[in-house]
């Protein structure tokens, strides 16, 4: 079980690392969309969180550091939430309110509640809200008067990555407790495999988004 988890985790590390390297190519890209200029921060933080986790997991034989996971989850939610807001064709106040409300709820779940083992629930809430925000993006692009080419649009690939990666993990992470109610080890293994898979899927789409930005520069 531990060995199979490592495979998932190592694939996730590799994808995040490739995503990080490609995101660096966009920093000085003048032709890339403005919203992509600061996107390198996300995979950079991802790599910074991944290094200690990778050492822990592969060499020290312990699981992901809880606090590191909590903070990375918060950053993940806030960064991607703001990113979706930035690329929305029509920005609305309700969107910000939803973003803040969910953020406060996740902060409460992670740091202030006394519920037992809430990371998977916080992960579910985070991803549920991100998926909902992605749906807002999709809904808005369908209402655009002048449609853009989706396959060349980095924001579309990034949002799709969040939608597929996080959307598929959200309900699963919520029901983990019911699937493995009598085994915390099984619960752990399920959860971390799910996290690894969802992040891998998401970063694969991010890579496509970066490639679109780089391609745009060449054109």
């Amino acid at each position: 079980m531990k060995y199979s988890y490592n495979i998932f985790f190592n694939i996730q590390c590799l994808t995040i690392f490739i995503s990080f390297l490609l995101s660096l190519l966009i920093i000085r890209n003048k032709n890339a969309p403005k919203y992509m200029n600061s996107f390198f921060i996300y995979p950079t933080i991802g790599v910074l969180c991944m290094i200690p986790a990778y050492i822990e997991s592969n060499f020290l034989g312990v699981e992901y550091s809880q606090y590191l996971l909590n903070f990375s989850l918060l950053f993940h939610y806030l960064f991607l939430g703001i990113f979706i807001f930035k690329v929305l064709p029509k920005r609305s106040l309700i969107f910000i309110i939803i973003l803040i409300v969910f953020f406060l709820f996740i902060v409460y779940m992670l740091f202030f509640s006394d519920w037992n083992f809430l990371v998977n629930k916080a992960f579910a809430v985070t991803n549920f809200s991100l998926t909902a925000l992605c749906l807002v993006y999709y809904f808005q692009i369908l209402k655009l008067d002048v449609p853009f080419l989706l396959k060349n649009e980095p924001s579309f690939w990034i949002i799709t990555g969040i939608f597929i990666g996080m959307g598929s993990a959200s309900p699963l992470s919520a029901i983990i407790d019911y699937l493995a109610y009598d085994s915390s080890v099984l619960k752990h293994q399920f959860f971390y495999k799910l996290v690894a898979t969802s992040y891998t899927i998401m970063h694969l789409f991010f890579i496509k988004g970066y490639l679109c930005s780089i391609k745009e520069r060449k054109v």
């Binding site: 999709y138 369908l142 799709t160 939608f163 597929i164 959307g167 598929s168 309900p171 799910l194």
Partner: peptide, 19 residues
């Protein structure tokens, strides 16, 4: 877990395809 995960991905892909 696998079946539910597959259903979820299928559902999301359906929404995406529709969009």
């Amino acid at each position: 877990f696998i079946v539910f995960g597959c259903i979820m991905i299928f559902l999301l892909l359906t929404i995406l395809t529709l969009v």
